Amino acid sequence: MPGTANAESGGSDDASDRYRPGYELVAERLLNYIAEQNLLPGDRLPTEQGLAEILGATRNVTREAVKVLAAIGRLSVRKGAGIFVSASPGALADDQLAHFQPTSMEHLLMLLDYRRLIESETARRAATLATPIEVRAMRESAEASLEAGKAGDAEAFARADALFHDSVSVAAHNVFLRSSVANIRRLISQSDVLLFHGDVPGSLEVAGTQHLGILEAIAGGEVDAAAELMTAHIDTTQHQFERKIRDRLFNLARRTDAQSSTASQQQAPETSAS
């Protein structure tokens, strides 16, 4: 991946942006460009060189940004045809989710608020409608998530976490709720990639323990408790995201201050010994 944005993508008005990867800043600009131009799934984008000129970046950094956005499903690169805005699975062509900004705190908080509403309802319905087989699937994935969390295995946890939330939505017996849960998780994963670069925003063991609590409430038919525990689980996720972002911004600010201090010392005139 390329170096800092300042070195590779023309700099930024925000000094702390100099320490964000160049491809990340350009990916953010590209998503903003798609939204500003009101481009929809299936629309063709300019060439890499054209995008580089539009975004004020080098072609190499633009190529990396396109690769990242293609990897998270926001762009489609077709050999010999060009770069296209990807269709959102299960979404209409004019769906506003096509303009979701993964690095926007405002969008992320709105998404988590929506997730809170949708998944608390899936848990509530699952507590009423889940079959024994569905409860068993939830239990297996919840236990697997806790085991992976204790082991610090982020990849295994991610698989178990996805299975758990999907199994709860299956037990709600509503295809639209299940589709909503899947779309929410897809969008949150985009923020994970662009904001945290594969790092985890919080304690996996805590999340696994919460999964088990939700499972037990659903298995016991405790409708209100299931919904409340799912809401608390998503609240925890939001707090972890916010803390991780604050920590990241704090570290960026410290690095910026340190560089400014070093530059000042280097520019100070030397004094002769008396």
Rank of each mutant, 00 (worst) to 15 (best):
A52E: 03
S76V: 11
R74C: 08
L69N: 08
R59Q: 15
V61D: 02
I72E: 07
T62Q: 07
T47W: 10
I83E: 00
V61E: 09
L55P: 04
L51F: 10
L75I: 08
N60P: 01
V61M: 07
V66I: 15
V77P: 08
G73T: 09
L75R: 08
A65G: 10
G50M: 13
A70H: 06
A70N: 11
L69V: 08
P46I: 07
S76E: 15
R63S: 15
E64F: 03
T47V: 07
G80K: 06
L75V: 08
G73D: 03
G80R: 03
A70V: 01
R59G: 06
G56I: 12
A71F: 05
N60C: 00
K67D: 15
S76Y: 00
L75Q: 12
G82Q: 05
N60F: 06
Q49D: 12
E53C: 01
L55K: 03
G82E: 09
G73C: 09
N60E: 14
R59Y: 03
K67G: 10
R59A: 15
A65F: 02
L55W: 04
G56V: 11
G80Q: 06
V61K: 02
K79F: 05
V68D: 04
L45N: 06
V66K: 02
N60H: 05
L75E: 08
A81H: 13
V61N: 02
A70E: 15
V68W: 01
V77G: 11
E48C: 01
L45Q: 04
A65V: 11
L51H: 03
